[in-house]
Write a protein that binds this DNA or RNA. Structure first.
Lengths: 133, 133
DNA sequence: CAGGATCCAACAGGATACTG
DNA sequence: CAGTATCCTGTTGGATCCTG
């Protein structure tokens, strides 16, 4: 019962349940890959599927497809299919999608500071999908 | 070998692997609960464990404990144990922790816009842990 | 080339019981 | 009160094979 100070309550938007808008945002752009995808689309007009794969060597094609579909469904990216042989599909940011970039940049800055405070460890070998022959 | 345009590479900091700082940030403040916890600590000096539980009825105590420990380990919150009976433990934001608040506010704003674009659906019954008698 | 479909492993996260 | 410990389940996400 009763109003809280922190603007919470149970809502649902596009199938995502959340208590505050911030939670909704995380449902939309959170996760392991979506920020990366948006980030790669940040300073180009469009990228095709294969280019995105090359940009993120450690994502599987299934995950990439899945995340792209969700981003598209949420109106953050456009998906343009060119009916050619071989097929070509290009992805680009929508206006709402561009609105996220500043937030990602802020996250990026925070990450850098965090990095600076704690320092780096050795990452060891890189288990990229691309590098596997 | 191979310089990328998008500032990626494989690093590791505090056990978290990532390719860009933004990814690191998401590892630190991402997930289902951490933003919420930080958010609830935003405008108070400290909150005790039970108060946080009450503020987030749908989190289990196990998850709350776990997330609090990780946030503490990452230097985002403080944990103060008062050796009394009954025990009292209070959590508060550190300076680095406060740096995240503006980002969360930005996420919050984005969420509101997203909400406004797509509208709300009915959330149905609320399966809160607290409300279960 | 871009993905759909399937199978499977790993892990996040929930329920419950117990403790200082 | 504020946890720990254990068990168990659902979901996420990876590997692999197939198709327009």
């Amino acid at each position: 019962m009763a109003g809280q100070g922190t603007s919470c309550g149970r809502k649902r938007c596009r199938g995502k349940e959340y208590s505050c808008s911030m939670e909704l945002s995380l449902a939309v752009i959170g996760g392991k890959w979506k920020p990366l995808i948006l980030w790669h689309l940040r300073d180009v007009t469009t990228l095709r599927f294969s280019a995105l794969r090359r940009a993120m060597p450690s994502i599987t094609q299934k995950m990439l497809t899945q995340q792209l579909r969700e981003l598209e469904a949420d109106g953050l990216i456009t998906r343009t299919v060119y009916a050619e042989v071989p097929p070509r599909v290009e992805y680009g940011l929508t206006e709402p999608g561009r609105d996220i970039i500043p937030i990602l940049e802020a996250l990026c800055r925070f990450g850098k500071e965090f990095e600076a405070r704690f320092g780096l460890e050795d990452a060891g070998a890189v288990p990229d999908h691309a590098a596997r022959r």
